[in-house]
C-alpha cells in the first residue's frame, strides 16, 4: 500500500480525508486504484491523453513525477499548483 496525500481541492472525493491508501507499482497504477476507490477523482488531475493536468503536480517519494509511468518508490503527493484567480 502506498500513502497518497491529497490537496483540499480533491477531498470532496474522500469524505474529507487528506490521505488515503492505494496500490500500484507506477504512478498510473496508483491513480487507477485511487479512481476505483474514489470514482471521479482521476479526471480532475489526469487528462484523456494520460497527461498530468497543467495546474497539478505529482510527487513520488519527494520527487516530481511528470509521467504516469514513474515507478512508485514511496509516498505519493498530489498538489494543486499556485494558480487561478
Amino acid at each position: 500500500m502506498t500513502r497518497v496525500l491529497l490537496p483540499t481541492h480533491l477531498r470532496s472525493y474522500t469524505a474529507g480525508a487528506a490521505q488515503i491508501d492505494a496500490e500500484g507499482r507506477t504512478l498510473g497504477e496508483v491513480l487507477a486504484d485511487v479512481e476505483a476507490r474514489h470514482p471521479g477523482l482521476r479526471v480532475r488531475i489526469i487528462d484523456e491523453q494520460d497527461r498530468i493536468r497543467p495546474h497539478v503536480k505529482c510527487f513520488v517519494a519527494g520527487e516530481q513525477a511528470k509521467e504516469l509511468s514513474v515507478p512508485v518508490t514511496g509516498e505519493v503527493q498530489i498538489i494543486a499548483a499556485l494558480s487561478g484567480g
Binding site: 481541492h9 479526471v43 480532475r44 488531475i45 491523453q49 493536468r53 494543486a80 499548483a81 484567480g85
Partner: peptide, 29 residues
C-alpha cells in the same frame, strides 16, 4: 476549477442535489 480538470454535474431534482457524471473526452491517443 482553476486547478482541476472538467466535470459535468447532474441533478435529478431541479438543482437541489448534484452528482458528478461523465466528462466528455477526446479518444486516447
Amino acid at each position: 476549477t482553476g486547478h482541476l480538470g472538467p466535470v459535468v454535474m447532474r441533478s435529478r431534482d431541479e438543482g437541489k442535489t448534484w452528482t458528478q457524471v461523465g466528462t466528455p473526452a477526446f479518444p486516447k491517443g
